Simulated assay, not measured.
Amino acid sequence: MRRTVRPVLWSAVALVTVGVGSAQERPAQPKQKQLPVMVRKLTHAQKVLEALAREDYTLLATHADGLAACVKDVTWRINDTERYLMFSNDFGREVASLQKAAKDKRGDAATLAFIDMTMTCVKCHRYLRDEGISRVPDLGPLAPRTRPAE
């Protein structure tokens, strides 16, 4: 029985080796078009809420970092008004607080930072809507809608 096992074993090792080698030689898959920054922000915020509910600090840190990356994205800044910049800066500070709380594994501090961040987000979107600031590229479904003409 040993005589039949060895060739089968070596055949399996050879197949795995060839499979690994050919997988490494494949050209990289084309990178999918990156989602609009506001869609990414929403996805990360939803995952932060999940992480808070589960007390999963690794997941929390990952998605807090994702929110921080959104703020740094060039498409984030859509307006130069003082009020918009205030909301944007507040959001960035709250995300930094969320990152710190995740690192320190402080659930209550992370929850408070998430609530503050969410309030700032809602206030900013309301401001953009109320001012009639129309959709700009890469805002996706979260873009503020302009008010109908009166």
Rank of each mutant, 00 (worst) to 15 (best):
Q34F: 09
T111E: 11
K123M: 14
I133R: 07
T81V: 02
S134W: 10
Y127E: 11
D73H: 02
A68V: 04
T62S: 08
A110D: 02
K47W: 08
W10M: 13
K41S: 12
D104E: 14
R145D: 15
T81D: 03
V5S: 12
K103D: 07
V74Q: 08
R77Q: 12
M38F: 15
K47Y: 05
L49K: 07
V37M: 02
L142V: 09
A109W: 04
S11C: 13
Y57E: 05
E50S: 04
D80W: 01
Q34C: 06
G132C: 09
D73V: 00
L59K: 09
P148W: 13
A143P: 06
E50N: 08
A61P: 06
L15W: 04
F91W: 07
F114T: 09
A14M: 04
P7C: 08
T81P: 00
A96W: 02
A69E: 01
P144L: 06
L60E: 00
D116Q: 09
K41N: 09
P141R: 09
E131M: 12
A102R: 01
R126L: 12
A12I: 14
R129K: 10
V13C: 06
D90W: 07
A64M: 02
K105Q: 15
N79D: 08
Q46I: 08
F91T: 01
S97I: 05
A14I: 10
L15T: 07
M117V: 07
H125N: 11
E55V: 09
L67H: 00
Q46T: 09
C70D: 01
S22P: 05
R93M: 08
T75D: 05
G92D: 06
D104C: 05
H44E: 01
M86Q: 15
K100I: 07
A12V: 15
G92Q: 03
E55L: 07
D73L: 02
T43D: 11
T58M: 10
